[in-house]
Structure formats: C-alpha cells, structure tokens
Write a protein that binds this DNA or RNA. Structure first.
Length: 210
DNA sequence: ACATTAAGTGATT
DNA sequence: AATCACTTAATGT
C-alpha cells in the first residue's frame, strides 16, 4: 500500500508523512454507487482519493438532491476537515460516482499533521481553495445558467470524471442530480440529439462533440 | 406473455 | 420549466 501512496501522493508529501498515513489509514475499494457519507453523519475519517470519483450532493427539505461537484484523484473532502474541528456533522452527501480507491485517515491526525508537516498544511489549504472555487462555480451554474446549459455542463463533467464519452444514466437520474423533472431532461436531451451533440439510447448517452 | 421500468409527447399552467 | 396524462419502447421474469 505504501507504494500506491507514494505513486499518488509522493509528489505532495514527504516520506515521513507518507509513512504515517500508511500506518493510520485504512485502504478501501469502493464500488460505484456506494454511499460514503450522508447528511447528519459525524465525520470520522477523511478520504484521500487514489482513483475514481465521488459526487457531492446537497439535499433540500423534501429530500430532493442537487449535485454540487465531483471529487477526483488527489483531492480530499474539505468538509471532513471543517467538521473535525468542531466535531460537526456532515452537511453533504457523498456517493461514489465510479469505482473508487481511497485511503481513510482518522480525522484526529489531521490537526496533528498541520503543525508537523508543511506539505500537509499546503495540501489542506490548497484543497480548501479548490473546493471553494468549485462551490462558487456550482452557484454560478445554478444561478446563471439555463437548464439546457446546466445539462450540457453536467454531461461534460460526467464524461470527464468517468473518462468516457459514453455515459450510463437514466433521464430521471439526471433529473435528480440537477433537481428538475424527468420530462424536462428528456425534452432537452432530445433537442441536443437533434442538434447532433449527443446520441441517445436506453440508459446511455453518447457525447458526440464537446 | 406479462409486468416493470425507461423514454417520448401533447397539453396546460 | 413544471406537472399531468398518456403512449411507446426496452427489458426482466
């Protein structure tokens, strides 16, 4: 496992830190669709991604979801950091978008390492910055883009994290992520298909031009 | 062959 | 852009 760590995080962390991560972390193989963290749960571990992607969702009062952003390799969940300081509960839901390999580090080490390792400090600050940017982007998307533009962005993002232009989703799953109705998605997808941007099949969408 | 789930469509608000 | 109501198509048992 230490080799895998070095391979993915060696360029970020010094050897001593890698060793510590290796000692206290738990390596996990997560299948696509697995619920990693739900709203209201206390966060005990922070994930360091090796490969794959995780989607981060917000939920409204009715239980409907809204996709905020994806986390990819080299990323961590900043929420886990914020929460461990105040022992707060998660305000987001995290679901594995693809099969994902990651290492779970107990949160109590995070603060310790902040003082001990400069590289860890940088990593946390940088992650913070990246997450904040992505949140702002998510807000912009919801506030300023129309549904057809949001859909197109969604498809592109999805293709990117999956490293594949063929996406396996149903229209209603998209509708859930974008917090709209299936009918609307079906219509917009149909329009995109007529424009030649995508190709539709049952449970599958192929992106033609990006 | 039948039931279930996914997707397409017109009409209305 | 959302909702309803209905149709058609694909898929599982």
């Amino acid at each position: 496992m230490i080799e895998a760590l070095k391979q993915h995080y060696g360029y970020l962390f010094e050897d001593d830190l890698l060793k510590e991560i290796n000692q206290v972390g738990v390596f996990k193989d997560i299948p696509a669709g697995f619920l990693l963290m739900d709203i209201g749960e206390t966060i005990k571990y922070m994930p360091l991604l090796f490969s794959g992607a995780i989607k981060i969702l917000r939920e409204d009062a009715k239980g409907d979801e809204l996709l905020l952003y994806f986390i990819e390799q080299g990323d961590t969940c900043t929420m886990s950091f914020t929460c461990c300081l105040g022992n707060k509960k998660s305000e987001i839901r995290a679901i594995a978008e693809t099969d994902t390999k990651l290492i779970m580090v107990p949160v109590e080490h995070m603060q310790l390492w902040l003082g001990k390792y400069k590289s860890w400090q940088n990593f946390i600050l940088l992650s913070y910055h990246e997450r904040t940017s992505e949140l702002l982007e998510a807000i912009d998307t919801i506030a300023f883009l129309k549904m057809d533009e949001r859909l197109l962005k969604y498809l592109k993002d999805k293709a990117m994290v999956n490293h594949n232009d063929v996406i396996n989703v149903t229209h209603s799953e998209i509708a859930q992520d974008l917090h709209t109705s299936r009918v609307v998605i079906s219509r917009l997808l149909k329009k995109l298909e007529n424009e030649g941007a995508i190709k539709l099949q049952r449970n599958q969408i192929q992106l033609m031009k990006l």
